[in-house]
Amino acid sequence: MSTQPILSIRDLARRYGAFVACANISFDVWPGEVVAIVGESGSGKTTLLNCISGRMERSSGEVRYRMRDGRFPDLQDLSEAERRFLARTDWGFVHQNPADGLRMRVSAGANVGERLMAIGDRHYGNIRQTAADWLERVEIAAMRIDDKPVSFSGGMRQRLQIARNLVTHPRLIFMDEPTGGLDVSVQARVLDLLRMLVADLGLSVVIVTHDLAVARLLSQRMIVMKSGHVVEQGLTDRVLDDPRHPYTQLLVASIPEN
C-alpha cells in the first residue's frame, strides 16, 4: 500500500450566506486511486470538486496536496503562481463540456501542445510530435492535428480534452461528469479510454458523476453526497452492492441494472 495520500480533505465547507453548498467533507485520495463523488444535481458534488481543485474558494476546512518534492501544504498557503503552475503541470481538469476545457479556435495540435509551451518547451517539431503521439493515444487520427475542435464530434472533443490534460504527465486529475454530454455509444469509448489511461499512467482521479455505472467502471472508492453532505462512502462495489443509507439505496434502486 502507498504510505501517504496525495490529496487530503478535512472538514471542508462552502457556504453562500446561510446556504450550505457542502459541509463536513473529509476524505483522502491515495496515489493511483480513483475516487468517485456521486449524487444528484444540487447535491454539492461539483461545488466540492471546484473547492478541492482550487477553482473556487472554500469557506472553511483544509485541502492538502502532496507535491512532487514531498511537501504536503494546504493549497491555500501556496502562492497563486504555484497553484496555477500545479494546475497546468501536475493536475488536470476534464470538464463536462469540452468547450470549457479546450481552445475551440486553435488546432488540436496546439490544444495538446499548449501545456508544453507553458512549461517552456520551445521546439516546434518536438511539440508537434508529442501532440501527434497523444492524439493517437486518444484515438484521434494524426491527420486531424491541424483541425480545430469546432469541427470535431462531441466524443472527439472530449478525447482531445483528455489528451490536452495528460500531456504534461500530471499526477492528479479532476473530472466533472466527463461523459455527461455524450451519446451512450460514445460514452463507452471515452470511459474505456479513461479507464485504460488511468491504469497505464497510475493517475489519481477525483471524478464527479451522477452515473453509477461510470463510478463502478472507473473508481475504487465512492463518496455519496446529498444536500451538501456525505451520506455514505467506501469501496465502490460495496456501496453499490450493499448500500446502507436510504439515499444510496434509492440511487441504486433507480437504475435499471448496474
Partner: peptide, 22 residues
C-alpha cells in the same frame, strides 16, 4: 493581467505554433 503578473506566456507560443502549422 494575471498571466502578465505571473509571467505565464505559453499562450503566445500557441499563436506562433498555429502560424507554423497553417
Amino acid at each position: 493581467r494575471v498571466m502578465h503578473g505571473l509571467e505565464e506566456y505559453g499562450l503566445m507560443h500557441v499563436k506562433l505554433y498555429e502560424d507554423i502549422a497553417q
